[in-house]
């Protein structure tokens, strides 16, 4: 049985290509909906001009699609609620700070 927890842990492994921090810790996942073996994932980005939107969507499909008993992964890009830096975990913010990125 696939559980939502399992989907979340697969999402944890997907990193933002520009800064190798998990997209979950960055607060890019707006929600997931699991129905049987089909999952729909709502993802948002830090800005409309995010350089890696396709890339992140591809990585999400690959990571979640690799879960056993998942037959289809649907990724919806949403802009509500918009991303703000408050959505990042403290650990993610500290890691960015170490690389000289103010957040």
């Amino acid at each position: 049985m696939v559980t939502e927890d399992l989907v979340w842990s697969a999402l944890e492994t997907v990193k933002d290509p520009e800064v190798p921090v998990s997209i979950v810790a960055l607060g890019l996942i707006n929600g997931i909906a699991l129905e049987g073996s089909e999952v729909a994932i709502q993802v948002t980005f830090t800005s409309l001009g995010c350089a890696c939107m396709d890339w992140i969507v591809d990585d999400i499909k690959a990571a979640v699609g690799a879960l056993q008993e998942i037959s289809s992964v649907h990724v919806d890009v949403v802009w509500n609620d918009p991303w703000t830096k408050e959505r990042m975990t403290v650990a993610a913010r500290n890691q960015l700070g170490k690389w000289g990125i103010q957040a």
């Binding site: 290509p17 520009e18 800064v19 890339w55 591809d58 690389w99 000289g100 990125i101």
Partner: peptide
């Protein structure tokens, strides 16, 4: 170079992910 190092990592990953596909 702290930031340069992190960014070069991104450039390499871009190549790797594209080539893998």
């Amino acid at each position: 170079l702290t930031k340069v190092d992190a960014e070069e990592g991104f450039h390499v990953r871009n190549g790797e992910s594209g080539l893998r596909a």
